[in-house]
Design a protein around this nucleic acid. Sequence first.
DNA 1: TAACATTATATCGTACACGATAAAAACAAA
DNA 2: TTTGTTTTTATCGTGTACGATATAATGTTA
Lengths: 146, 146
Amino acid sequence: MHAELQLDNQICFRLYTAARLITQAYTPILTTLGITYPQYLVLMVLWEKDNQPVNDIARRLVLETNTVTPLLQRMEKLGFVVRKKGEQDKRQQIVSLTEKGKQLEEEAYAQVPTGMNNQLSACPLKLDDYQRLAQELDSIIDTLKK
Amino acid sequence: MHAELQLDNQICFRLYTAARLITQAYTPILTTLGITYPQYLVLMVLWEKDNQPVNDIARRLVLETNTVTPLLQRMEKLGFVVRKKGEQDKRQQIVSLTEKGKQLEEEAYAQVPTGMNNQLSACPLKLDDYQRLAQELDSIIDTLKK
DNA sequence: TAACATTATATCGTACACGATAAAAACAAA
DNA sequence: TTTGTTTTTATCGTGTACGATATAATGTTA
């Protein structure tokens, strides 16, 4: 029985579990908006800056393009974005928000933060804790993102 | 432009990213052992206590049985576990380690902690930080696990 | 400029996750 | 004990993730 191999000692298992549970908490809210959590992430990237190539979106989300490409294809089919060949660089696909995609920002603003705060209201963590948590996660992310 | 909807303000995005990067860090090590990260989690549960029904494993990993059942079927095909109908309760499938599954514990003990420490050695977090991080993640997990 | 390397997407195969549903066994209550 | 409910597992469909590979466009270099 090796203590190093016990589940309870694993920060990694906690990260894995917390990430899944957070995504699950988003799901009912995002479902009413007609999107998934990764799709919501893509929209946030585009709400911040529209008309980006696939690569920039993938880099921002720390995802591979072979994850993002099908994600964008589904989002295009759903009418949230369009993809157009780049004019300077014809290899690129420039991803842009449709009206439907743009309008979703207001709806998300009205529903998502409130909904998530509700579900996390019983959590004992305070603002300071969340800020430190964010920094600690960033240092893990920076270390592993080569 | 709503600050609440910015990626950088999202603890959730960080959790999601950190969890994926950690899993990616495990992958090369676990690949040499012939398993994936979720399979490693199942093995850790069984190394702690062998001969458990599907439900107990799923509960321990905070996963649904419809995730764990196919996971176990793959692990059985790979020869790490066997599944036998429960004798008292014939609905249950009791999952047990094979010799191959048991022997993997020593190999994992030799390779996994060292390999992960190597990859995280550049991370500025100290033991105290990891312990507090674990507690904070637990309080998020406890809040969201209904 | 012709040949080679690099970059940006896309495609394919495999393995999770999970909501929805199904089926069999166990349990509970009338 | 018969009927209805709950529990345990399995199956199905959809959507990520990601390693491996392919392809077209761009850059580079001899």
